[in-house]
Amino acid sequence: MYQLKSNIKNINSILNAEKISTQTVRKRMENNMKALVFDQYGTTENLHYRDVPTPTPKDNEVLIKVHSVSVNAGDILLLSGLHYLARLATGIFRPRINILGHDLSGTIASIGPKVTEFKVGDNVFGAVPMLNAGSFADYAKVPSDHIIKKPENMSFNDAAAFPIAALTAIQAIKYNIKPNSENKVLVYGASGGVGSFAVQVARALGCDVTAVCSSRNSEAAKILGANRVIDYKTESVFDKSEKYDLVFAANGDNSIFSYKGLLDKNGVYVTSGGSLKQMAGAMALGPFILSNKMSFLSVKPNRLDLEYLCNLYNDGKLVSVIDKVYPKDQLIDAIKYFEKGQARGKVIIDFTK
């Protein structure tokens, strides 16, 4: 009899353990989300989907249910691992930050205990910091000062096009032109995501804008506000005698010395992208060649500039230029398309489709 009771007790223990285990597994599944991840630096072939834990927002963070995202050059650079200084933060040998995506729009799913300016259910857009897990996932955790409420007349796709590219344009131009004067601004690479915003921002600030792009994009650059357009395939801006108050290289593969020749006496050169050679030259040589003039811009998302962005949008002075919109299950295809470097404006992924 004792043996029977003992066996029954053991069986009950096993059954309870299995029940607890099943409940635990179910709870873990409920707390997971689908994300596009990479476990090794390299190409898009290293990208794959995986169930990962849904992040929990800290004190001053919010958790956003992702509606739309866009692709940026920084995503490709992070995936490649070719920015070796960045690896000190993202993982030297293997990626520690392994979810790409920095632009997003969506709806707040939960908030940290110290967040007061937002509530669950607010529609927002903004940018995920470089050292956070990114937005190519069902949910993304974002500092509350990196987002802003989405205007009602702005679609989620439009909102996802703005953050990194438009903020880069704003910070490159607004804070580097001379106040109370008509500045002559050159935008090199005026047809891409950042460049198309840069032309608009410069024009909104009353600048005389010269856009450099291919002939197939020249008409679009004029519509966005360029006073003149130079087709880099048929003529070189570096052969001309024109001088500029601000040269913004949003794209390209040129040396810092060639850009220096385009500057007026007190002109400023800024770059935020282009080839590794162009970026490395700006970072390594810019402080010496251009003295105290800014040479390389790493965008810093903040609420003040996001509010300025929204004001330009509401005034009809800033629009998103969207090349293609992909459904969620074609996210890798969207990245591959962007990587070709032929997109006119932004490449968007709609997570609701």
Rank of each mutant, 00 (worst) to 15 (best):
L131N: 12
E45C: 02
A159D: 01
L15Q: 06
T107A: 02
S191A: 15
A133K: 09
S181R: 13
E182N: 00
K328V: 05
A133G: 02
L85I: 12
Y41H: 08
G225Y: 01
K324A: 10
D253Q: 10
L88A: 11
R344P: 00
D305C: 05
N314F: 01
V142H: 02
P113C: 05
I97W: 00
N183K: 08
V325R: 05
N254V: 12
I14A: 08
N98T: 01
R344V: 13
S236R: 12
R228I: 01
V128T: 13
L297I: 04
Q23H: 13
N227T: 09
M130F: 13
Q23E: 15
L262T: 00
V115N: 03
L309Q: 03
A250S: 15
Y259P: 00
N292S: 14
F248I: 02
N46M: 10
I322K: 08
F257Y: 14
N98E: 04
L318D: 07
D208L: 10
H48W: 10
K340M: 15
F38L: 09
E339V: 04
L306A: 06
I349E: 07
G286C: 07
A250T: 15
K141G: 00
K240N: 14
V325Q: 07
N153M: 12
V128I: 11
S320M: 01
L285D: 06
K340H: 11
V321F: 07
R303M: 03
L167W: 09
D75R: 00
D103P: 09
K27N: 15
K149G: 03
